[in-house]
Design a protein around this nucleic acid. Structure first.
Lengths: 103, 103
DNA sequence: ATATTTGGTTTATAAAATAAACTGGTTTAT
DNA sequence: ATAAACCAGTTTATTTTATAAACCAAATAT
């Protein structure tokens, strides 16, 4: 018997973006990460990264703290509970598209 | 010991699109599917679907055959080997972002 | 002292997604 | 038979998004 393809759940547009997803992927695995580190890991330009971090922050998916590292400014990012949940749901939703079984 | 986060492999921009990914997801599981069916499964508007099918076709990820179903036109879509490979690679790449282990 | 680099932000441009409007033909109602 | 409504799409226009280029302030190097 054939399985009927159910209609697709929409993908959170905030996470369905290469750079924002990479940022979230980094932040989900660590306590916090700074702008420079995220930039180096993603290979993004500073401008692009700045914009995307703003969007994640505006959505409440991450929180951004501006501090200093010695005399230099340092922008720290941390994932929030909301962000963690959104990420988890995005992954589950995506599995439907990728045909990966839900555990 | 901490695992070092490796830089992210780029995601195939042709597949990293909600609607095109849904189309590919449908086609990967069947022999062929027609426009109307894909439209109903994805909930996309005809215009949007038409454009995205063209892009997948232009990339050689799917092939499109125009036939008739009785007197009505019928646009059939089939995934190609190239498309199947691209999809598989996209899934593997994405796993890095989603923190899903390879196999 | 001034040139360069660092750590970003703001603004402008390019690309993409999406919907609205349209086409060519078919079926249905009058 | 003709008009109205409908179906299966395509084309074009609009909106949204991603991305880079230009910029700025502070720190460091020359």
């Amino acid at each position: 018997m054939e399985e009927k393809q159910t209609t697709f759940k929409p993908l959170d547009p905030l996470l369905h973006s290469e750079l924002r997803l990479a940022v979230m992927s980094i932040l989900i695995g660590v306590d916090e990460a700074d702008f420079v580190y995220i930039k180096s890991q993603t290979g993004a330009t500073a401008g692009n990264l700045s914009v995307q971090i703003d969007k994640l922050s505006a959505a409440g998916y991450i929180e951004v703290e501006k501090t200093f590292k010695g005399k230099k400014t340092c922008t720290l990012c941390r994932i929030t509970d909301k962000g963690r949940n959104a990420f988890a749901e995005y992954v589950e939703t995506l599995k439907q598209y990728l045909q990966i079984p839900k555990v």
